[in-house]
Design a protein around this nucleic acid. Structure first.
Lengths: 343, 343
DNA sequence: TTGTATGCGTTATCAA
DNA sequence: TTGATAACGCATACAA
């Protein structure tokens, strides 16, 4: 960082070599941490690099190593719904955290349609991207399978819909939902409704499954009228809630909402109807990030350590890029209840 | 796209040249649309390219042209608050729309601290990035000035705090806010409150200014008790609203909220307090995107064509990258009221 | 442990 | 209008 004023900045490896009195090869070795360099040579090179502020040319390096040092963040979701989701914010933080420390670039790619899917594959095949991080893919998203078939380095931010030889991280949504509903039951609630997620996504399916499991386990009936469906957005949560309130004879005394954002929508509707939380209705949600904290009243939630998951996911991908033979891994995070006051 | 099965894929310019029976130079010229190529040569090359599925190597090209074909999306905001803002989603859509059509990569960079700021500058200086798109910078964000000082290609998503020789797009927030308040006045409201934005951001300042202007123009007093401040997040909107309701003797009969997300927070508080919109309180907000559509009840808003602005912004940057001598431009979009039902 | 020489795939210069 | 040829900056096989 410190470099004397009269030292001209070195722009190439060769300039560093000359200044340090060694060959280009030696400089290259030092930069790439080759062990086959003498202490004295290494020190000399390191010093001149520091003094001259030299930084390697990425393109030149890529040309010979066939590595770009950049990975794609592929948002494979129709019309960027993901973006306004706090879940996404956490993912980005986790990913950039890992990536920026290793001087790797994160390339943002929106892949909504067929054409965009092909583009992603081309990018990987052409070596513009070393690997791909896939965010929030729907059941019918063909991208994960395409990536596996072409053996391109990739990792998913959630369990793939059908079994696939691809690494991913996820939370145990079944257990999480069951945990939420159990808490409501143990709090004395008997008419427990749920605002469920989309049933073409594992996260949506699993949370509904967990809800059902918990009810069965406590010998409570599953009333279809108490189940509404949303697509993880705030407004869809509100709609589902309205539907539940309209359909039922009695309003529910407990509510499990399958996502953060939907919880906000559902809470707004409850407030509108004059239903107090948790006096009238106990609510437990899923916690993607801070939205749950903003909920009014504060919401008891099943916590998802999204940022940490994203870090793990990124490291997994980088491993795989470095060593294509590394095994496929699946990391399932256990659920944890964060009790605030509601529910 | 169509290419016969027995045609081996061409990976280099040279392979294409051989297959087409011309020299590398000619192939290069065709690819770069040089006019100095005969029709016959051009056709031959184009055909073989299509047949072999050849695509140029980005790194090799970058090495000689000094252009990476990628621009940075710099999110210079503490702790990615921007991410959960629908404003950001629209920006990303607009930017990717332009960028993907030109086969330019979008590199996502979170620049929260000093260190990250330097990194952005380094990236640009080192030529890893051809230019930078800056999102939502605060008053004390030094990045815009740093970019200008080093003459690095950049564009801002909003008017810079202090005058700077840098291109940007923005909406006329003063006029927009005035438009909103005027509508409330003309609807017969007299005690008009505002949930204002942060006063260290132009968007926050201007909207408060517009609010004041409109009140003055209609000879209504500005009551400090009717002004609350948020930071553009949903929860801060709720807090500001609570503060206003707590402070005042009478509740307001009109409300102007300086942002989309804050409006949702404010509406939730009104609902909680049993204040009906628009019966008790007329509300007009600012429309960053879809959040306003999700507002319950539907909100009359001052519309910001964020996606289009982002497209313009991107094109501006690309122009500047192509021709560094191109003039600095500022595009201010006029406000437009989208009447839904409230207000 | 070090240095020399070659090649990565393009674009650009120059001569033909 | 075309083609040889020389960079671009780096990593690496090989020789020393």
């Amino acid at each position: 960082m410190v470099r004397s004023v009269d030292t001209p900045r070195a722009h190439t490896l060769e300039e560093v070599a000359v200044a340090a009195g060694v060959s280009k090869s030696t400089v290259s070795r030092v930069i790439n941490n080759s062990p086959a360099v003498s202490r004295t040579a290494r020190d000399a090179v390191r010093q001149t690099i520091a003094r001259t502020g030299y930084r390697p040319n990425r393109a030149a390096r890529t040309l010979v190593t066939r590595r770009t040092g950049s990975v794609g963040l592929i948002v494979s979701e129709p019309e960027g719904r993901v973006f306004s989701d706090p879940f996404f914010a956490s993912v980005v933080r986790g990913v950039t955290d890992v990536v920026s420390q290793q001087d790797i670039q994160l390339v943002l790619v929106l892949a909504n349609d067929e054409r965009a899917h092909r583009q992603v594959l081309d990018y990987l095949r052409d070596g513009h991207l070393d690997g791909a991080l896939l965010i929030s893919s729907h059941a019918r998203d063909p991208l994960p399978r395409m990536l596996v078939e072409e053996a391109l380095p990739a990792a998913l931010s959630a369990r793939p819909v059908s079994p696939l030889a691809i690494s991913y991280v996820d939370v145990d949504s079944v257990a999480g939902a069951a945990l939420a509903v159990t808490r409501l039951v143990e709090g004395g609630r008997r008419r427990i409704a749920t605002v469920a997620g989309p049933q073409d996504m594992p996260a949506g399916q699993d949370r509904l499954t967990g809800y059902r499991q918990a009810l069965h386990r406590h010998e409570l009936a599953v009333d279809p009228a108490l189940v509404g469906y949303g697509n993880f957005t705030r407004s869809s949560g509100a709609q589902a809630m309205e539907q539940i309130l309209a359909a039922g004879t009695d309003p529910p005394d407990g509510l499990f909402v399958a996502s953060d954002l939907m919880a906000l929508g559902a809470l707004a509707v409850l407030a509108e109807r004059g239903l107090r939380v948790p006096r009238d209705v106990g609510v437990v949600g899923f916690d993607d990030s801070t939205a749950a904290l903003e909920a009014r009243p504060p919401l008891t939630t099943v916590h998802q350590p999204v940022e940490q998951m994203a870090r793990t996911l990124t490291l997994t991908l980088l491993d795989r890029i470095a060593d294509p033979g590394s095994p496929v891994t699946a990391r399932i995070y256990p659920p944890r209840l964060v009790v605030r006051e509601s529910g």
